[in-house]
Lab assay of single mutants.
Amino acid sequence: RRRVRAILPYTKVPDTDEISFLKGDMFIVHNELEDGWMWVTNLRTDEQGLIVEDLVEEVG
């Protein structure tokens, strides 16, 4: 499975499927959606939700 790491922190918009995260958080990518969004699991918090790919980098 594809893994990505947050390069910046992010605070979710209330009442959306987004998740908040810290710089350095690792995610497993489940689905890549339109307009650069990804459905992921945050490995630190075990939370699932949407993040935008501009805020993460690939992990080898």
Rank of each mutant, 00 (worst) to 15 (best):
N31P: 01
E58H: 08
E34L: 14
E58K: 07
T11G: 05
V4T: 04
L8D: 09
D35S: 11
D25R: 00
E34K: 14
E47D: 11
T16V: 03
P14I: 09
R5Y: 06
H30D: 07
E47A: 07
K23A: 13
D54I: 12
L55S: 08
E53C: 15
E47M: 07
K23C: 13
V13M: 10
I51Q: 01
V52L: 15
D17M: 12
K12S: 11
T11D: 12
P9T: 12
L22K: 12
W37I: 06
E53K: 15
K12G: 10
R5D: 01
S20Q: 03
G36P: 05
L43H: 04
I7G: 03
I28Q: 07
T41H: 09
V59R: 05
P9H: 10
L55Y: 13
E47F: 04
Y10G: 04
E53L: 12
G24I: 03
E18P: 02
L33C: 15
F21K: 00
F21I: 04
T11A: 08
T41G: 03
M38I: 10
E18F: 06
T11I: 13
R1L: 15
P14G: 08
E32H: 11
S20M: 02
F27M: 09
D17L: 13
Y10A: 04
M38P: 00
K23D: 07
H30Y: 11
G24W: 06
V59E: 08
E57S: 07
I51D: 00
M38G: 01
V4C: 09
R3N: 09
I28T: 09
K23S: 10
T41N: 04
R44G: 04
R2N: 07
N31R: 08
D15L: 09
W37H: 08
D17A: 14
I51G: 01
I51Y: 01
V29D: 00
F21P: 00
S20P: 03
Y10W: 06
M26Y: 13
L8E: 11
N31G: 09
V40S: 03
R2L: 07
V59I: 12
V59W: 11
V56K: 01
S20E: 04
V13R: 13
A6Y: 01
L50S: 08
E32A: 12
K12M: 06
V52W: 14
F21Y: 08
R1M: 15
E18M: 08
V29G: 00
G60P: 10
D54H: 13
Y10V: 03
T11Y: 08
E58I: 08
G49F: 02
E53I: 13
V56T: 10
D25N: 00
V56S: 03
N42G: 02
K23R: 11
P9E: 12
G36D: 04
T16K: 04
L33P: 10
R1G: 15
E47T: 06
H30G: 05
W39D: 04
V29L: 04
M26D: 08
T11C: 15
A6F: 01
N42K: 06
L43P: 03
P9L: 05
N31M: 14
Q48N: 10
R2I: 07
E58Q: 09
E32K: 13
V56W: 03
D54A: 15
A6R: 00
H30K: 05
D15N: 12
R3A: 09
R2T: 08
F21H: 02
S20C: 04
L22H: 09
D46A: 15
E32C: 15
L8C: 15
T41I: 08
M26F: 11
P14T: 09
E57N: 06
V40W: 00
V13F: 11
Q48M: 09
W39Y: 09
W37D: 03
V4L: 08
L43A: 06
S20G: 06
I19E: 00
N42A: 09
I19K: 00
G60W: 12
E34Q: 14
R5P: 01
F27Y: 00
D17I: 08
V59K: 04
E18H: 05
N42Y: 01
V4Y: 05
I51P: 00
K12A: 12
V52H: 12
D25W: 03
I19R: 00
E57D: 07
D46N: 15
W37E: 05
M26V: 12
N31L: 15
T16N: 04
N31W: 11
E18T: 07
G60A: 13
V4W: 05
L55G: 05
P9W: 06
P14Q: 10
E34C: 15
L22G: 06
R1F: 14
E57K: 06
E32W: 07
G24S: 05
R5I: 11
K23N: 07
Q48I: 12
D17T: 11
D17S: 14
S20Y: 02
V13D: 10
D25E: 03
V4E: 01
E47G: 04
V52I: 12
K23Q: 12
L55H: 09
F21T: 02
M26P: 04
L43N: 05
G36L: 03
D46C: 15
R44L: 04
Y10D: 02
I28D: 15
L22N: 12
W37L: 10
Q48C: 15
R1P: 15
L50N: 04
M26K: 06
